[in-house]
C-alpha cells in the first residue's frame, strides 16, 4: 500500500527554499521567493497554482521546470520527479540529467507563444528543432507523428508550413500546446497560458489543454492568478502567498469551504453576472519578499488576525481529506459564497 501511495505522486517537493541573492554597488538583497514549500502532484491530475504578482509563484515553477539562473538558486529542499525513466531531483541534477528529461518527460506551455515560436522559421521546422531528438524519429515517420498529434488538437496539417505571424493568437497558442505535448510528456508546466487571449479563445484553449491532459494521462501544473480559470480547470488548487503555500485542497472545497482567509477573500471577490451585491475588497498590499512580515505573512491584511499570528508561523496542517491550510484560526474561516446561493442566482 505504501508502495502504491508512492507511485501515485509524480512530483514531490519537500522543504523547498529558493532565494535570489544579489549585490549591486554595496546594496545586498536577498529575496526569499520560495520559502519552505512542501507539496506533491499526483499522476493524471491538474494542479492549479494561484498567486498574485510577486507572490513567488513564477519563481516556484522556475524551480519545478529546472530553469534556474543565478542569482536565483535553491537553498534547501528537494524537487523529486518520479518519471518512467527513473527518479530525478531537479534541485540537484546535472545539466545532462535535465537535458534527458526535457520535452520527453517534462515540458512547458508558456504565456507568450511568440517567445517559443521562432518568427522566421516555419512551424514544421520548430517542431523538428524541439521534438525530433527527444522522439528519436526522422523524416516521414516524424512528420506522421506530428500530423496525427495536431489532428487531436484540431489543427490542420497546413500549419506546419505556416510562419507564426500567419496564425491567429488562439492558433499560435494551440501550436505551442502541440509542441509541449507532442512527445507525450508525463509532466507539463503551464504558466499563464491563456492570460493574453480573449475570453472566447481562452475557453477553447483551456478545454483543449484539459482534453489533451486526459487523453495522455499526464500531470499538469497550471499557474494563473485568475481564480475562475482554476475553478474550471484544476482538480486541486494550491494558493501561494509571499513565497509560501498557504492552502491547498480539492477545487470544489477551495471555492465553497476555504480554510484560509486569503483564499476565502480571493473567491469572494470574484464578481458574477446576476449578482450586484457589494463585493469585499482586501486592503493593504502584497508583502515584499525581501522583507516579509513576521509570523503568518498574511497577518497585516487578515481580518481574523490575533496576536499569535504576528509572532508564530502557522504550519500547513491537514484539516480535511486532501485539504491543508496554514492558518491558526482555520476553524473560524467562513466561506463568503455558498454553493446554494450561487446556484439560486443562476436559476
Amino acid at each position: 500500500m505504501a508502495q502504491d501511495n508512492k507511485r501515485r505522486d509524480i512530483l514531490t517537493v519537500e522543504g523547498l527554499k529558493a532565494y535570489y541573492q544579489m549585490s549591486y554597488f554595496g546594496v545586498d538583497r536577498e529575496v526569499r521567493a520560495v520559502d519552505d514549500i512542501t507539496m506533491t502532484v499526483r499522476r493524471n491530475e491538474i494542479y492549479g497554482i494561484a498567486g498574485e504578482s510577486s507572490s513567488g509563484k513564477t519563481s516556484f515553477i522556475k524551480v519545478l521546470a529546472a530553469a534556474l539562473r543565478p542569482p536565483f538558486r535553491v537553498v534547501a529542499g528537494s524537487v523529486k520527479y518520479d518519471f518512467s525513466s527513473g527518479p530525478v531531483d531537479v534541485a540537484d541534477a546535472t545539466d545532462a540529467q535535465i537535458e534527458a528529461i526535457r520535452w520527453r518527460h517534462l515540458s512547458y506551455i508558456m504565456q507568450g507563444s511568440m517567445s517559443v515560436l521562432n518568427p522566421v522559421r516555419r512551424i514544421g521546422r520548430t517542431f523538428e528543432d524541439f521534438a525530433a531528438r527527444p522522439l528519436g524519429l526522422r523524416g516521414k515517420a516524424f512528420e506522421e507523428r506530428v500530423v496525427s498529434h495536431l489532428e487531436k488538437l484540431k489543427l490542420p496539417a497546413d500549419v506546419l508550413r505556416a510562419y507564426p505571424h500567419e496564425l491567429s493568437g488562439g492558433m499560435r497558442q494551440r501550436v505551442t500546446i502541440g509542441l509541449a505535448t507532442v512527445c507525450r510528456p508525463e509532466f507539463i508546466i503551464a504558466d499563464e497560458p491563456t492570460t493574453a487571449l480573449d475570453v472566447v479563445v481562452q475557453k477553447e484553449v483551456l478545454s483543449l489543454i484539459r482534453d489533451v491532459q486526459q487523453e495522455m494521462g499526464s500531470s499538469v501544473v497550471f499557474v494563473t492568478h485568475d481564480m475562475s480559470v482554476h475553478a474550471n480547470m484544476a482538480d486541486r488548487v494550491g494558493i501561494i502567498y509571499a513565497g509560501r503555500l498557504v492552502e491547498e485542497g480539492p477545487t470544489r472545497q477551495m471555492f465553497f469551504a476555504p480554510k484560509h482567509p486569503y483564499t476565502a477573500h480571493l473567491v469572494a471577490s470574484l464578481p458574477r453576472i446576476g449578482d450586484t451585491t457589494q463585493r469585499p475588497a482586501l486592503e493593504g498590499r502584497p508583502p515584499s519578499l525581501a522583507a516579509p512580515p513576521s509570523g503568518c505573512r498574511f497577518h497585516p491584511r487578515c481580518p481574523l488576525a490575533i496576536d499569535k499570528c504576528k509572532t508564530d508561523v502557522p504550519p500547513l496542517q491537514t484539516v480535511a481529506p486532501d485539504h491543508r491550510t496554514a492558518c491558526w484560526r482555520w476553524q473560524d474561516v467562513q466561506p463568503l459564497v455558498s454553493p446554494h446561493a450561487a446556484h439560486g442566482v443562476m436559476a
Binding site: 544579489m22 549591486y24 554597488f25 546594496v27 538583497r29 525581501a290
Partner: peptide, 13 residues
C-alpha cells in the same frame, strides 16, 4: 552600468 535605469531601479530596491 551605474546610471542605467534598470540597475538604478535594482539599487532602489
Amino acid at each position: 552600468e551605474y546610471i542605467d535605469p534598470r540597475s538604478r531601479l535594482r539599487r532602489m530596491g
